[in-house]
Design a binder for these strands. Structure first.
Lengths: 218, 218
DNA sequence: TGTACATCAGTGAACGCGCGTTCACTGATGTAC
DNA sequence: TGTACATCAGTGAACGCGCGTTCACTGATGTAC
């Protein structure tokens, strides 16, 4: 039997912001949406209703901050790309050899996907909001790709490979393969993968870029 | 102004099956679900309601044939894998050289994905029904992978490559890369891809398997 | 050859859920005077 | 120093939509007799 005397309080209702601090709710909403994407492993369950419930406000209170879910998704994706960049740059920090740096950055790519599968699917899958969809040359995905091409070009200049194709073309190829390797791992976690994701990435990148003379163990 | 005299007929209502032919509705439902997956480019809009509407029956009439959407999805996916197999085998038919056959089958893989993006996403994405999710060794995806490994092994035996790694391990690597290359093409159709999908697949597979001595143009 | 009836192949109404979106509103609080 | 009030930060009710699922039902038709 429930304790009848407990008043039917609206549970987890969020305290109202002070005057002038209404913008806080905006970041709280992005936090909640980010958490929902992480929890549900995708953007399927990302709805204004679910986000409002998680934050503890009325659904209608979302509207002053975001006109629709799409805008909220964009904010989540932008955060995701920022974190994605940190993964890759921190992976190659303090590595001077360009080939080792390239491999480390690619492993960082994989680690981000494994750590944040929901965000990865949203960022590189079919649900990416229109406004970020790689059409603008300064879209975050395009910038990441240019970074990969730069890293490959460094390898070519340092003589770490005999492949002198267009670095951007090579980068697109490497990107595609990385995407497939990590997508399958996060979407088929129970498949008996014969090697670790790091090993698979190393193997693929070495072969695709034609890196030579490196110790084959990572 | 509408012609008022037209009775409000339930439009597109499907004629009732003859007695004993109730099973026809089952295939009609799979047809409709297949069409919906093809139209919407995924399984998002695949619902009992939508399928029933498309077939022209009451929603409740689906239940005698499928207990839930999951069962319907399974039927759609099984059809998809059958078609997928036809793509790959017809691509390599009448090719005797094992390396050329491997490349042709991989291009067939890509063509299936480009021709049927909705099915491809369902078959290789996170929405695959549990019962088909690659755990059983005889799951259709597992059989396709073994076929790829066989094709690679033929290349090794014929001396088309110097790589003598475990063919299954190589096949998993190639599969991952193929998956990424085609997934990005179908999910980012407006990206300025520098090469055709066929060319990208050829390039990647040659490098990953280490094929040599082939005319580099496909 | 006729007819009763079991069965088949569905229908229709109803319910609750989560969702997006509108509209009028409320109550606290900073600030102008 | 007090107070009126504009504005800020949200609320609550309501609507229609698509969805899954239940339940009792209906009408045609093949078949047993």
């Amino acid at each position: 039997v429930d304790t009848v005397d407990t008043e039917p309080t609206k549970l987890d209702r969020r305290p109202r912001n002070r005057r002038g601090e209404g913008a806080r709710l905006r970041t709280d909403l992005i936090d909640a949406a980010t958490a929902l994407v992480a929890e549900t492993g995708g953007s399927q369950r990302l709805s204004l209703t679910a986000v409002a419930k998680k934050v503890g406000i009325a659904t209608t209170s979302v509207y002053p901050h975001f006109a629709n879910i799409e805008e909220l998704k964009v904010a989540v994706v932008e955060r995701g790309f920022a974190e994605f960049g940190r993964y890759r740059s921190s992976a190659s920090r303090s590595i001077s050899d360009p080939a080792e740096a390239l491999l480390a950055r690619c492993r960082g790519y994989g680690r981000f996907a494994v750590d944040h599968p929901g965000h990865y699917r949203l960022m590189f899958g079919p649900d990416l909001p229109e406004s970020l969809s790689y059409e603008a040359p300064d879209a975050p995905g395009r910038r990441a790709l240019r970074g990969l091409a730069d890293s490959i070009e460094q390898c070519q200049r340092a003589g770490a490979t005999d492949n002198h194709d267009d670095p951007l073309r090579l980068a697109v190829l490497v990107w595609g393969c990385l995407h497939g390797l990590v997508s399958l791992r996060i979407d088929r976690p129970r498949f008996p993968w014969p090697t670790s994701i790091d090993h698979a990435i190393d193997d693929a990148v070495r072969k695709l870029v034609g890196l030579h003379g490196l110790s084959p163990s990572s």
